[in-house]
Amino acid sequence: MPEPTSVPAPPVTVSRPVSEALLNEKWDRCISNMLIKSTVGLGFGIVFSVLLFRRRAWPAFVGVGFGAGRAYEECNWSLKQASQELKRKA
Rank of each mutant, 00 (worst) to 15 (best):
S15W: 06
P17F: 04
P17E: 13
V18C: 10
V18G: 15
V18Y: 14
S19P: 05
A21D: 15
A21N: 04
L22D: 10
L22W: 05
L23Y: 08
N24S: 09
E25C: 04
E25A: 15
W27I: 14
W27G: 04
D28P: 04
R29W: 15
R29N: 13
C30Y: 08
C30T: 07
I31F: 10
L35E: 06
L35T: 07
L35Y: 09
L35I: 08
L35P: 01
L35M: 03
I36E: 05
K37D: 03
T39I: 06
V40I: 14
V40F: 07
V40T: 04
G41A: 00
G41N: 01
G41K: 02
G43N: 07
G45Y: 00
G45H: 01
V50I: 14
V50K: 14
V50M: 13
L51K: 12
L51V: 09
L52T: 04
R54M: 09
R54L: 06
R55P: 05
R55A: 12
R56L: 09
R56K: 13
A57K: 11
A57F: 12
A57I: 10
W58V: 07
P59F: 00
P59H: 06
P59N: 02
F61Q: 07
F61G: 15
G63K: 00
V64W: 06
V64Q: 06
G65P: 02
G67L: 00
A68W: 01
G69L: 07
G69S: 13
R70V: 09
R70P: 03
R70E: 15
A71E: 02
Y72I: 04
E73T: 06
E73H: 06
E73I: 08
E74G: 01
N76V: 09
N76D: 14
L79G: 01
L79Q: 07
